[in-house]
């Protein structure tokens, strides 16, 4: 079924893209409920986080269990800068990305030679360390109370207040993040990273600078997560350390794996479904988490590679093109 769906997706790629883009732009005008808009905004933000994690986990093949740490670092940076120092939105966004990137660099150094589960534990522990610091460094982060009343996002003196405005901001950020990640995947660097994922030793032997590209991938990935964090803190205007726990890291990773590692479309899909699902399951009240867990297990059993993990869109595209060509040729004869 997924294969059929994917073929269909590829066949009508152009039309679908235009429709999706139109829908995305018109969405806030179709649904005006603040609740729906908030969920939509969170969906887009999680999409952005998943796209950024996908670069590290899917493309580079380093399964990070600590992505929420970068997100949190970005959020705290932006909150502190804009609240205590009155920075404007764009500057805070850039700085949040830079600081998160620096931490990414810091993390990438010890994990450079660690593989598999050692990488996993270090990222997990990293997330925990960051959270402990967020909780304890009272003078900077206001500890467990969190930072409240963070100024709203403002561009050149215009303060954004409506949900609609935030929807467009995150839509733009998501588009930018997707563009960056796609560009990277389809560049020389992307192929190098893919080669490293498949076989680090062989890639090194082929003359690929393993160290450099690994660091690049991790830093870019964490920068994007930091930018998402900046958006988050300016949007909700309240953050506390409990927003950025290991459980959240796991959630983001689950979204990526659910959609399919290394697949941007899958990440979108996973983030959207798994953000909406808990809201839909609200009716189950205390059984909500239980049902969520059970669904996760069932879905993994049905699609062990994630929904779109085993789908090669490029291959489908080529096959379709070939069929078309063949059909066209037949027509000529």
């Amino acid at each position: 079924m997924i294969e059929k769906l994917s073929t269909w997706l590829v066949r009508y790629k152009r039309t679908l893209l235009i429709i999706t883009a139109l829908l995305a732009v018109l969405f806030p005008w179709i649904f005006s409920s603040k609740y729906v808009l908030r969920i939509a905004i969170l969906c887009l933000m999680y999409c952005m986080l998943c796209v950024s994690l996908n670069l590290m986990a899917g493309v580079l093949g380093q399964i990070s269990f600590g992505h929420a740490a970068f997100w949190g670092i970005g959020a705290y940076t932006a909150a502190i800068l804009s609240k205590n120092y009155g920075w404007n939105g764009i500057a805070a966004l850039l700085m949040a990305a830079v600081i998160a990137g620096l931490f990414g660099l810091l993390l990438s150094l010890p994990v450079m030679h660690l593989k598999g589960y050692y990488f996993t534990i270090v990222t997990m522990v990293f997330c925990q360390i960051i959270r402990v610091i967020e909780i304890n460094w009272m003078s900077l982060t206001n500890g467990p109370l969190g930072i409240m009343a963070i100024p709203k996002l403002s561009f050149f003196g215009v303060t954004l207040k409506s949900q609609r405005a935030y929807f467009y901001v995150i839509l733009f950020l998501l588009a930018a993040a997707t563009f960056i990640v796609r560009k990277i995947i389809h560049s020389r660097m992307g192929y190098a990273i893919l080669a490293i994922r498949d076989d680090e030793l062989a890639a090194g032997a082929m003359g690929i600078h393993v160290f450099k590209y690994k660091v690049y991938a991790i830093v870019i990935s964490s920068m994007l997560a930091g930018a998402a964090g900046c958006f988050y803190s300016l949007y909700t205007s309240y953050i506390d350390p409990s927003c950025f726990t290991n459980a959240i890291s796991n959630n983001i990773l689950v979204m990526v794996i659910f959609g399919g590692l290394g697949n941007i479309f899958g990440s979108f899909f996973g983030a959207t479904v798994l953000t909406i699902l808990p809201e839909v399951l609200r009716g189950f009240s205390e059984y909500r988490q239980l049902v969520y867990g059970a669904l996760l297990v069932v879905l993994m059993l049905v699609r062990p590679d994630g929904l779109f993990g085993s789908v090669n869109f490029k291959y489908i595209e080529q096959r379709l093109a070939w069929k078309k060509e063949k059909a066209g040729g037949d027509g000529h004869e």
């Binding site: 603040k34 609740y35 808009l37 908030r38 969920i39 969170l42 969190g146 909700t236 309240y238 506390d240 409990s242 927003c243 809201e279 609200r282 009240s285 205390e286 909500r288």
Partner: peptide, 15 residues
């Protein structure tokens, strides 16, 4: 149900 999580609480507040 907000699970005691401020973010969920804000979701609900908007609702």
């Amino acid at each position: 149900d907000d699970k005691g999580d401020p973010n969920e609480a804000v979701n609900l507040a908007n609702k």
